[in-house]
Design a protein around this nucleic acid. Structure first.
Lengths: 257, 257
DNA sequence: CCTTGGATATCGGTT
DNA sequence: AACCGATGTCCAAGG
């Protein structure tokens, strides 16, 4: 790339960054990173996104993950060297530095992006927890809610603590995806702790949309229980209690078909 | 955006995707996602990257994380609707669908990116493990290596298994950053398992550059040990054994100064 | 501030 | 194909 073109491109990037604009560059570059780890990426053509908040993202032409990046609040310097542009992004804590050397530009976009829209997401573990807390009976018995995020000594926190019609306490562990054996062990640790703390038996329920392959045998051998939770049921409960009104109102547009 | 422009843009995107090219679009769009979770993002201006392998990434003008995405091997369809382009990306397993409605294009790049370079990274947990395996004595005693990734029944795998001069086995858990209480618990599970499996006492060592706040009290109360590992020491050992020669040879370019 | 735990986590390697 | 642990994990909530 010609010297003048490099200078001009560097100035466009610097000016855009100072003006709070977004920069997208498709370019031939090298990348070095030093911080919690160290990495080196030889010359090749990539997509670079530089955001007004300092986030810097480098994508190779394949894969989901960026090959290199700095998070928001990093700071950038732009300098022109012999035959290349040097972009240095510095993150303060932990101290991390990323150096990009740009040798050629295929395309360069700079400008402000107007994006004031709301982003709504639903289906988290917490959404499931809220739904069960609102209607513990969806677990199949007349449970009553005792507490959420109930401390289990130094073992952690039980997602939910319920009591069944017999007055027996029930520790509930929730997973948003297929519950693994690890989740079963986690529940067991809570049940063991709480049984010891109370001095009498406690039930343990794993609530999840599904069980991973080896989870059921382990669960049963440990005397624990599984209750399937249906995300649609969760949505219905939250919706009836007003938690998801606007979101669900039009989610069907993108959901299927 | 004019109808003809939309049609033309849609065709460019479709043709590029079919030809195995990369697409970067800066556009005014809406996004819906349905799969393991559900999300909705109203209209606004974003950066969209579509890669030849099917990866699809949508970035808002701030933050490190993409607001919506599909991983590689997703498939794309492009259609023109009234006043907008509809991009639908489908991931087969788990079944997940992302719909993008594009109302206006600020910029559109399509083309092949040539990127054959190697990406090298150093400083992983595995690098630390290799260094200790090569020179177990850096943990401060005359340990001998027994095994790497030694299976601890159904609890997982110990990073390293050593034996001390007394013939006592030592389970080692390695962390590349500050070791948390969670790491201490993980080590405890391994030590408990292996003590039971062998029928006599086993030592447990947590090897990491640092201990997180609450980790030391827990570690000591469980009778486990901590050994600090120095990344520079790790680099020296690996370098002397030839593992990092080429990489370290020029990493100084990007590391500092 | 640090610590903790979730995430559409993603990504490999191993079973 | 499922499971398991690492990740420059990132990130928000707060015990």
């Amino acid at each position: 790339m010609k010297r003048e073109d490099l200078r001009e491109a560097a100035e466009r990037i610097r000016d855009a960054y100072r003006a709070g604009e977004l920069v997208v560059a498709l370019c031939d570059c090298e990348v070095y990173y030093s911080g919690r780890s160290f990495s080196r990426l030889g010359r090749g053509e990539r997509v670079i996104i530089l955001k007004p908040d300092g986030a810097l993202i480098v994508h190779r032409p394949w894969g989901y993950s960026p090959v290199n990046y700095q998070p928001q609040s990093s700071t950038l310097t732009v300098t022109v060297e012999e035959g290349r542009i040097h972009l240095r992004s510095t993150r303060a804590k932990p101290l991390e530095v990323m150096d990009i050397y740009v040798y050629n530009l295929l395309a360069l976009f700079t400008g402000k992006l107007r994006d004031e829209a709301e982003f709504e997401m639903w289906g988290s573990e917490e959404d499931i927890k809220h739904a069960i807390a609102l209607e513990p009976s969806i677990l199949g018995e007349r449970f009553k809610l005792v507490d959420e995020e109930h401390k289990m000594g130094d073992r952690g926190y039980a997602d939910l603590l319920l009591v069944d019609p017999n007055g027996t306490y029930v520790v509930v562990e929730i997973k948003k995806g297929a519950a693994t054996r690890e989740a079963v062990k986690q529940l067991k640790r809570y049940v063991d702790y709480y049984t010891a703390a109370l001095g009498h038996p406690v039930r343990g329920i794993l609530a999840a949309p599904a069980l991973a392959k080896g989870a059921r045998p382990l669960l049963e051998s440990l005397g624990l229980e599984y209750r399937r939770v249906d995300l649609r049921m969760v949505a219905r409960i939250l919706k009836s209690r007003g938690g998801l009104l606007r979101f669900l109102g039009s989610s069907d547009r993108g959901s299927s078909r």
